[in-house]
Simulated assay, not measured.
Amino acid sequence: MVISRSREDARLLEGNLKFGDDTLAIKGSINILGMEVDSRISFDRHLETVVRRASLRLTLLRRVRHLLDADGFLRLYKAQVRSVMDYSPLTWMSSAQCHLSLLDKVQRRTERLIQLTDGQQWMGR
């Protein structure tokens, strides 16, 4: 990956970077310790991946919520969903508001599910 302010630099270096006899391919982004970093040091794609993973896990929790009380649901949420969202937040805190609002949507879905689960508990479930 070429990190530069100029978009031309990556194109100029394509095919010219070598390691021994091997020519290195230039990538637009790389994954380091579970964080996706692109050539502009923007974490928007990483944040989208985090939101997608958290949303999928929340969907799975929604499917089993009828088996849980509100406390059990909250514990599973913190272990399975929130842990994904809290991993390396300093990297994406400078992301655009449109990307950060995706995290807020996951949070609002969680709040609605907790309210529904809590309501089921009072209804005798």
Rank of each mutant, 00 (worst) to 15 (best):
L76K: 01
A96R: 14
V106M: 03
S55G: 15
L60M: 15
S83T: 12
A10G: 10
Q115F: 05
R5M: 02
S95Q: 12
S88E: 13
R11E: 14
V84D: 09
G28N: 11
T91N: 05
V106I: 11
L113A: 11
D22R: 13
R63A: 09
A10L: 07
R65A: 10
L67C: 06
K27A: 05
F73E: 08
L74A: 12
Q107F: 12
V51D: 00
N31P: 05
L116S: 15
G28S: 14
S88L: 07
R52W: 03
R53G: 08
K27C: 04
R5K: 12
L12S: 08
M35G: 04
W92R: 06
A79D: 02
A96T: 15
K105C: 00
L24D: 10
I3D: 00
T110V: 10
L113E: 13
T110A: 14
S101F: 03
I30M: 07
V37M: 11
S101R: 12
L67D: 07
S94A: 15
R75P: 00
L12F: 10
A70M: 00
M85I: 15
R82H: 10
F19C: 12
E8H: 13
L13S: 07
T110S: 10
G20P: 02
R5W: 04
V84E: 08
L103M: 13
G20W: 02
M1F: 01
R63L: 14
R5S: 12
S6R: 08
I30W: 02
R63D: 10
K27E: 08
L58T: 06
R11K: 14
L13R: 07
L113V: 03
L68E: 07
D21W: 09
Q107I: 04
A54G: 13
A54M: 04
V50S: 00
I41P: 01
E14K: 13
E36N: 15
V37D: 05
N16A: 09
Q97I: 14
L33Q: 04
E111G: 01
T59L: 15
R112F: 01
S55T: 13
V64N: 11
I3W: 08
A10W: 01
H46W: 06
G34F: 05
M35T: 14
A70I: 10
S83W: 05
D38Y: 05
D44L: 07
L61R: 10
R57W: 00
S39P: 08
D71H: 14
R109E: 04
D69C: 11
R11Q: 09
Y87L: 03
L102S: 09
Q80E: 12
M93N: 14
Q80L: 15
I26R: 06
L13W: 04
N16S: 09
A70N: 08
S4R: 01
D21L: 11
D104L: 08
T23D: 03
A25F: 00
I32K: 02
Q107T: 00
V51Q: 05
L102D: 03
H46I: 10
R62D: 14
T110K: 10
F73P: 01
V64R: 05
